[in-house]
Every structure is written in C-alpha cells, then in structure tokens.
C-alpha cells in the first residue's frame, strides 16, 4: 500500500545476498578471464583479437537481459503497484546502459582489426546502438520530473513500449542490413564456437549476471536510503507549514 511498505525486508535480504553474489562475481570473472585469455586457443583467422569476444558477447547478452529485467519490473510496478519494482527498474537502467556501452566499445575495438574500421553498420552492433538510445531515453525520463514517483511511472510505460519495440527494431535492422551489406561480411560470433571458447564465454556471462545482481542490490539500497532522507526533509518542511 504505502510506497515504502517493505524496505526493511528488502534491506535484510540485500545484506544476506550481496556478499554471495559479490564473491561469485569475483570468482566467475577471474575464472572466465583465465580460460579466455590464457587457457583457450587463438582463432585460426582472427588470432588473439577473438578474445575480445569474451567481454563483447556477454555484454550484449546483459544489455538485452537488463532491459528485459526493467520491462518485467516496470510491468510489476504498473500492475501490482509494488513499491520496490519502480526502484529496480530505475536502478537497473544505468547498469544496462553500461553493459550496452561496453558492448559497443568492444565492438569497435574488435571491428578495427576485423573490418579495418572502428565502426561498421553491422546489424547486431546497430541494434545495440539503438538499445543504448532506449536506455538513455529511459534514464532521461526518470530524471525529468520534480516528483520522483511521476518519473518512475512515466519511465515504466516507456520501458514497456520500448520492450515491445526491441524485436521490431531488431527485425527492421536485420532487414535493412541484408539490403545494404554484401553477404561476405563476417558476422560476429557467426561461426560455430569451439567448446574451449564456450566455457570462458559462459563463465563470463554468469559472472556478468552476478555482477549485475550485486550492483542492482547496491543501487536499490541507495535509492531506499535516498527516499528515506527525502521523507525526513519533507516532514521537516511540513512541520513548519501546516503544523
């Protein structure tokens, strides 16, 4: 019912979960980096540049996964008015934008040796770029209102509208890309992946997920504390105003 009906329970849960996810993040990413950078072979065509994949591909996964998380949280906020769902959506957006940006930057770094150019209008990269804009729009809308609850509700509707659009945009960009790019362009992650490459990829993917969960808990906790501070300020103001 009330906006912060059960932050106490969430804070207790966060205190239990966060050390585990943080620990898992360190172990998984360390293992993923070891297998990715040391214990796996270089690609017979691309050489060592293929190792960018171990950051690039999981980032792309996370970009989509976090947006899905946001959409689910937004639907929860709109339908059941769950007070924490708004905070989850708001807190997840910058993390997702970060993953998407990492994906774009590593894509550019990978593109230079592969295509001889920092940026190619590859279908996947282009879709990620548009996803990045969707994240930016969401973050801007959340912050555009003086009343934080207004921003949260507007952003929830936007997140759902964006989520419906993501597959449409993906389809459109793929269509556009096949029209304008000759088929000879090598698609990233296109060829079959050797098991020795798959292991570090999955390790990194799971590690990125636990990293996301850890940071999400951190950010939601900070949001709850910030809301508490606003509530205290408000009672002070009201104490002088109405009495």
């Amino acid at each position: 019912m009330h906006r912060f009906a059960n932050p106490a329970r969430f804070l207790r849960l966060a205190a239990v979960v966060m050390p585990w996810t943080a620990g898992a993040t360190v172990l998984l990413i360390a293992a993923g980096l070891f297998f990715g950078l040391v214990a796996s072979p270089a690609d017979y065509q691309q050489g060592d540049t293929v190792r960018i994949m171990y950051v690039h591909v999981p980032s792309a996964w996370m970009g989509l996964f976090v947006y899905t998380t946001m959409a689910v949280a937004s639907a929860t906020a709109l339908i059941w008015k769950h007070p924490l769902a708004d905070l989850v959506a708001k807190s997840a957006a910058p993390i997702g934008a970060g993953f998407t940006l990492v994906c774009l930057v590593t894509g550019a770094l990978w593109g230079k040796p592969m295509w001889g150019t920092w940026w190619a209008w590859d279908a996947r990269l282009t879709s990620m770029l548009i996803l990045f804009f969707l994240y930016l729009g969401h973050m801007a809308l959340v912050d555009a209102f003086d009343d934080p609850t207004r921003g949260a509700r507007a952003a929830a509707i936007l997140a759902l509208a964006g989520f419906v659009n993501v597959p449409i945009i993906k389809f459109s960009v793929d269509w556009w890309n096949t029209l304008h790019q000759p088929a000879s362009v090598v698609k990233m992650g296109g060829p079959a992946i050797d098991p020795s490459m798959l292991a570090p990829l999955l390790l990194m993917g799971v590690g990125f997920t636990t990293f996301f969960v850890t940071v999400l808990f951190l950010r939601v906790r900070a949001e709850i504390l910030a809301a508490k501070i606003r509530a205290i300020r408000l009672t002070q103001v009201r104490g002088q105003g109405v009495g």
Binding site: I130, F133, L134, L136, G137, A140, L141, A144, F145, D146, R150, A154, I157, L158, A161, G162, N165, I168, I169, F171, S172, V173, W175, W176
Partner: peptide, 27 residues
C-alpha cells in the same frame, strides 16, 4: 503524453521517440 509536465520536454521527446521511429524509416 510521457513528457507532460517534464522539464525540457522538447529535447526529451526526441530522445524517447526517434529510436522508436527507426522501423518506419527503414521500411
């Protein structure tokens, strides 16, 4: 509808809407 009552609504509107216009543009 989303930018009603928002600060700097005009610029914000373009950020929200233009990415969603891309499929129409492509086809």
């Amino acid at each position: 509808a989303l930018v009603l009552g928002a600060r700097r609504g005009g610029v914000l509107l373009s950020l929200l809407i233009l990415p969603l216009y891309i499929p129409v543009l492509i086809f």
